[in-house]
Design a protein around this nucleic acid. Structure first.
Lengths: 236, 236
DNA sequence: AATATAGTACTGACTGTTCAGTCAGTTCAA
DNA sequence: TTGAACTGACTGAACAGTCAGTACTATATT
């Protein structure tokens, strides 16, 4: 967010800065990010539809017209926002899953661990999933972007991991597609319940950590190769 | 959707229907449901924001003004829609969970079974969760309504079921709050992935059935009281 | 050093459109 | 002849997107 800036105002800059207390010129290259940062907060607070371009402009200390120098339309801002946050992250998660050898549960534990760390450190990193879950359902473009940039990369990697785990006998044979959905389901549901329906678990702190622990406990045992008389379910 | 109707057109009704082939008068009592049915389909096809009251009126063979004889505002239509579909159903599911004795996994299996049956039979029953997942995230009122009418009834019942199951030794002791989220998570995620992100599992048919089978298999083993060397996870 | 020229960054009043909601008036059965 | 059901043209407000014009800086010219 903070670029290292080459001061291109030459020798005149400091002389003037001393005499008049003129504030240093704002750097135009930073404008797009400033607009996006403001928009992210507004979209989260009020939703995309209830946020006007005028508000975004004011938040970024600009006039409405200036916003259109950097973005073609209001939906374009939303898309740029998702694009900025999403690309590299998904690639990293997918390759992490893909490279892992051995018990899939361990790979999942590591991945979850990294993600929660990131969410705690970087404020704006945690905001993006919230934005997506709020806007994707009513905005096909956002949904498609997120699907193509994130889910289409991570989900196959996860399924591949599970498939290999089944093949190597680390976990029991099950419908891979559905197992993947069972693995990520609780995280999604947690997000949905917390964000959309404002239903947080009773004891406040460490929600995410506790969810992940519980889920991993269930999965470790639930996915373990069958040992004795576990009643398994055929269709019907 | 079809009300049993007391025919209040008295004795003249049939005589007229015989002589003139005048189409039977449309019953005004049916108007609200007709409007809601039309609105449901339009909201699902285009989303709430992109649907105009004019379109709803036309679909229900009415003028725009007439819609406002039955509903106070456009958001009011959305709320009435959710309210109509949601009330009784949640109550039934919750009491089913509450009354069950014995292994919670069996209760879940029965519940899932009933729900899939219903979803297959009644078209409009299946539409409502889709509507809610699309509109709740951008409409606080819908989210609140759904939370109060459905989640606030079902989730505690589920947690209670799990609590009793843990107490009786049918399932292992875990964080009840989070276990509940792990139980319903896969269903929610499935809905989100299918509906919002348009990601359906590769082999088309019986998705829901296969998801539920997989999830129940994982849960049966995953929630079973620990038997031997299952590596359990403490925090960190 | 003073003045012209070019060009970028930005402003904010304005336009056009969309649409929720209204209401004076119409239709028609009873 | 009453009144419930309904019509559809209209109003007002909100807002995305535009554009003629301003401000300010950097470089070129005299």
């Amino acid at each position: 967010m903070e670029h290292a800036t080459a001061d291109n105002s030459k020798h005149r800059a400091d002389s003037k800065a001393k005499t008049t207390s003129k504030p240093p010129r704002r750097r135009p290259e930073a404008r797009p990010d400033e607009i996006l940062d403001t928009a992210l907060d507004l979209f989260l607070a009020q939703g995309f539809h209830r946020t006007t371009v005028e508000q975004i402009a004011r938040g970024a200390k600009l006039s409405k017209g200036a916003v259109y120098l950097y973005f073609a339309s209001k939906p374009d801002i939303l898309l740029a926002l998702v694009r900025r946050a999403v690309g590299a992250m998904a690639e990293r998660a997918a390759s992490h899953l893909r490279q892992h050898q051995g018990d899939p549960c361990l790979a999942l534990r590591e991945l979850f661990h990294v993600l929660t760390k990131l969410a705690q450190q970087d404020q704006s990193f945690a905001k993006v999933p919230r934005l997506i879950i709020h806007e994707a359902p009513s905005s096909p473009e956002v949904a498609q972007l997120y699907r193509d940039e994130v889910i289409a990369k991570v989900l196959p990697a996860l399924m591949d991991l599970l498939e290999r785990g089944m093949h190597a006998g680390h976990i029991r044979r099950l419908d891979v597609d559905m197992t993947a959905r069972c693995v990520i389901g609780p995280l999604m549901a947690h997000l949905l319940l917390s964000e959309v329906f404002d239903l947080r678990p009773q004891s406040g702190e460490l929600e995410l950590q506790r969810l992940i622990d519980t889920q991993l406990t269930i999965l470790s045992a639930g996915l373990a190769p069958r040992q004795e008389g576990d009643h398994v379910s055929g269709p019907h």
